[in-house]
Design a protein around this nucleic acid. Structure first.
Lengths: 128, 128
DNA sequence: TTCTCTGCAAATAATTTGCACCCAT
DNA sequence: ATGGGTGCAAATTATTTGCAGAGAA
């Protein structure tokens, strides 16, 4: 199965990159609709999935009701708001994880790790 | 509003602790039903929410379709399986996060952080 | 007695899927 | 012309909520 670069796929990718944010499917749908009003939300879902499998975007594993997608594929960590669930990048060097002791691995084959910092974002601090 | 320790609440708490796992609401429901067959799934959801607000259990922020709950309230990190989404504890000392440089904080007030190690669990390795 | 809690069913929210037609290659 | 992609609507999955009766304090 080979990927086709359809118009909708191209716009979805472009809008996510342009946003420089970590959008959910429906947030991205709202933006994409401005350029392509007849696009379906299902198409956005399908393409986010496909694009992340293809490695063109990243699917975030941070909790929250909705899945979020990252325009930046390079390994990096995140800081997120415990109030509004917004996610931002964390500019911080990552240390290697050779240091995980064997008896902590519990028989897992380790494929990666991430650091997630939780906090309250500037906007939500203002609202209080 | 004060908490009442009802029978269902007690059993939910006991079963989660007994499991020593990071169960989702419906997994816990299946276990609790063995002791209390007429309990409703809604009660399990409601109580997991209430118990985690009360600090008796912890709501995990790791992604996956379903929310998962932790019998252990003490700060610790997790390792999870990218295939089956099972979660286990990571026995590893946590280093302090004073080291987050100010310009990485992006205006957030930091409330905590966690390290999540991803991997493939022993069971899923076998299945391949 | 008082008011929180529960079971049940119905409602929501997020995401996925079947299907007939469309269009990139 | 082929077979992946799309829009639409219906289906699923996970979770939440309204309500009337139950039971803990």
């Amino acid at each position: 199965m080979q990927l086709r670069m359809t118009n909708q796929r191209e716009i979805i990718l472009r809008e996510l990159r342009k946003s420089r944010q970590h959008l959910s499917a429906d947030e991205l749908y709202e933006r994409v609709k401005k350029t392509m009003p007849r696009i379906s939300l299902a198409t956005v879902y399908r393409n986010l999935e496909i694009l992340s499998e293809a490695g063109l975007i990243a699917k975030l594993e941070i909790s929250g009701r909705q899945k979020r997608f990252d325009y930046d594929v390079v390994d990096h960590d995140h800081i997120y708001c415990v109030v509004c669930h917004r996610i931002d990048n964390l500019e911080m060097k990552r240390q290697s994880f050779e240091e995980i002791p064997d008896d902590s691995r519990r028989g897992y084959s380790i494929t990666g790790y991430r650091v997630e910092v939780a906090g309250i974002c500037p906007e939500c601090k203002k609202k209080k």
